[in-house]
């Protein structure tokens, strides 16, 4: 079988890249799969967590609420604030180590992949919480007052009025977070997740061709990010909606 890309005796770096990519295609593919899995799952769950934390931080307490509710609110708010601070103020690579080995220490058998996803979720959640809070803050207070003035509860107002608008405003930031996560999965090699970085390290070691091996995954990371970026831009445009509207002619005469 003739393969255009197979090179038997690689001589320069480019040929080495092609040679390695071809020979270890399955390893690179598996690495890509894991990188995507952790990035996508971690980011999505992280977004959910971030929204929950962001909402908690934004919640207001009424003077007339009973004392139990007030204390409970206060406690939850403090826990949320501590969580956000800790995860924003420590590096992800250290978090990965501490969480993975910490859980193992507690005699719970967690796989590196599960730990990797957990770290990504917690990290994303902490950053997203701030983004969501900012997004909520960017929506004019009048939008909420309009709903409140008709008897809508703060919770429903958030759900139907504020969040849909805030969501639109923070899409670029969410896209950023995802792209960051996609690349940050590379630090998870420290807890032995077989993602792209780990694959390159292994492959490079076989022939002592690290430069070429890492170039291969650089290209893969680049292509992934490039494609996702284009998808996000497309989605953002889609969400902008139409610029025109049709007059409801059926209601034009009988006024």
């Amino acid at each position: 079988m003739v393969n255009l890309f197979s090179i038997d005796n690689p001589e320069n770096s480019l040929e080495w890249m092609i040679f390695l990519a071809d020979k270890y295609a399955s390893m690179f593919l598996e690495g890509t799969r894991l990188t995507l899995l952790i990035a996508i799952l971690g980011t999505l769950l992280g977004f959910v967590l971030g929204y929950v934390i962001g909402l908690i931080q934004d919640a207001k307490i009424n003077q007339g609420d009973n004392i139990v509710k007030k204390v409970l609110y206060k406690c939850i708010k403090i826990i949320a604030a501590v969580y956000v601070e800790i995860f924003r103020d420590t590096p992800m690579i250290v978090q990965a180590m501490i969480i993975y080995f910490g859980i193992r220490e507690a005699n719970i058998n967690i796989t590196p992949i599960a730990a990797g996803i957990l770290v990504t979720v917690l990290n994303t959640g902490a950053y997203m919480a701030e983004t969501v809070r900012g997004g909520i803050g960017s929506i004019d207070l009048g939008q909420r007052e309009g709903a409140w003035a008709m008897g809508m509860s703060p919770m429903k107002t958030m759900l139907y009025i504020v969040l849909p608008q805030a969501f639109k405003n923070i899409i670029p930031e969410m896209a950023n977070t995802f792209l960051t996560n996609l690349k940050m999965t590379s630090v998870l090699n420290v807890i032995a997740v077989q993602e792209l970085f780990m694959a390159a390290k292994t492959v490079g070691g076989n022939y002592y061709k690290y430069f070429e091996s890492y170039l291969v995954i650089a290209v893969i990371y680049f292509v992934l990010c490039f494609v996702f970026n284009k998808i996000f831009i497309f989605m953002e445009k889609k969400l902008q909606g139409k610029n025109d509207y049709a007059l409801a002619v059926e209601y034009m005469d009988n006024q």
Partner: peptide, 15 residues
Amino acid sequence: RSKVGMVFQSFNLFN
């Protein structure tokens, strides 16, 4: 509030 409506200076329609 559901029985006492309010119209605002800045309209506050849901965008």
